[in-house]
């Protein structure tokens, strides 16, 4: 399957799949420029990265300035943020690189220590590359398809396979005292916020009290903060209780018609079961399930 362009004319192998600019860059409908990527210079096959300037209507994230951010698709799993940074610095100095599984706003930064961070999936990713200068974007977008980016070179080899796993294993061994420190730090922080919370509540409670002159400050919380939060479960329980109360008051099997109804119901139940069984049998018969051998 050779990539075919525009008028459907077949080109040579490794020919760009889109419109070719004078510089050799390949742009496809949708505004993406296709770049190629090789693991090392001796690799035979290439991945295709699609790049485009980052453009969303309302970018709230100040880390992704619209004019200097390049949006990259299909970054292979063995490219870490530093590798991507290295690859793209040929277009100009890179300020930061951010990789994520799906395009979209960045998840909230968490400040957890390294031990408590959850490891991400090692899949293909999208990247947001922030250059220091806006001109780098254009440089990247006009990069020709036939000169592939290299992931690993002799100067900066990228660890893959066995070497990577051994490295990761070494990294995964936890220094006991460092872990203890991290835990202690977090718990101190946590206790502090808890204390602050308690203090705040106390303060609010105090505000509810009459002051010397007998005034009470009315706050947004209505009749003061509740001791425990509303919960869905509690709500349901009350509803059930009321239901039960209602039912207890009803009389069953009292009037003749009620008893007649119960009998009728019994027969109807039998009938229903009979019909259900018949249906089940029909299903089995359709599958020839009654052949004993």
């Amino acid at each position: 399957m050779l990539p075919v362009c525009g008028g459907g004319i077949r080109r040579e192998k490794m020919a760009p799949p889109g419109k070719q600019h004078a510089s050799g860059a390949c742009v496809i409908p949708g505004g993406f420029t296709v770049l190629s990527l090789k693991f090392r210079s001796s690799s035979s096959a290439q991945h295709q990265l699609c790049v485009k300037e980052h453009r969303v209507r309302a970018e709230k994230n100040s880390n992704r300035p619209l004019d200097r951010t390049l949006f990259v698709l299909n970054i292979p799993p063995y490219c870490s943020e530093s590798v991507v940074k290295g690859m793209f610095s040929q277009f100009g100095p890179v300020q930061s690189v951010e990789l994520s599984e799906k395009p979209g706003p960045k998840e909230a930064e968490n400040t957890l220590s390294q031990y408590f961070k959850t490891a991400g999936r090692q899949c293909f990713k999208v990247g947001y590359i922030v250059f220091k200068e806006a001109s780098s974007i254009a440089a990247a977008k006009s990069h020709p398809l036939n000169s592939p980016l290299l992931v690993s070179n002799s100067k900066k080899p990228v660890r893959v396979g066995l070497q990577k796993w051994i490295h990761e294993y070494t990294q995964s061994i936890v220094k006991q005292d460092a872990l203890q420190e991290a835990v202690d730090e977090f718990m101190n922080q946590y206790d502090k916020t808890k204390e602050e919370e308690v203090e705040r509540l106390q303060k609010e409670a105090e505000q509810q009290q009459e002051d010397e002159e007998g005034w009470v400050k009315v706050t947004k919380g209505g009749k003061g903060t509740k001791a425990r939060p509303h919960s869905e479960v509690a709500n349901q329980k009350t509803l059930q209780k009321e239901d039960k109360k209602k039912r207890r008051k009803e009389l069953v099997n009292f009037y003749t018609w009620q008893r007649r109804d119960t009998q009728r119901e019994h027969i109807a139940q039998l009938r229903k079961k009979f019909e259900e069984d018949k249906q089940r049998i029909a299903l089995l018969r359709a599958q020839r399930k009654f052949r004993p051998y």
Partner: peptide
């Protein structure tokens, strides 16, 4: 777009898995 390559026919871009590169990745990884 993950692991796929682009193909343009009549101004419409479609994608299909980049099998060669994937098989190469099996080796690299």
């Amino acid at each position: 777009m993950n692991g796929r390559k682009v193909e343009v026919v009549n101004e419409v871009a479609t994608t299909a898995p980049n099998v060669e590169a994937i098989v190469e990745d099996f080796r690299i990884m």
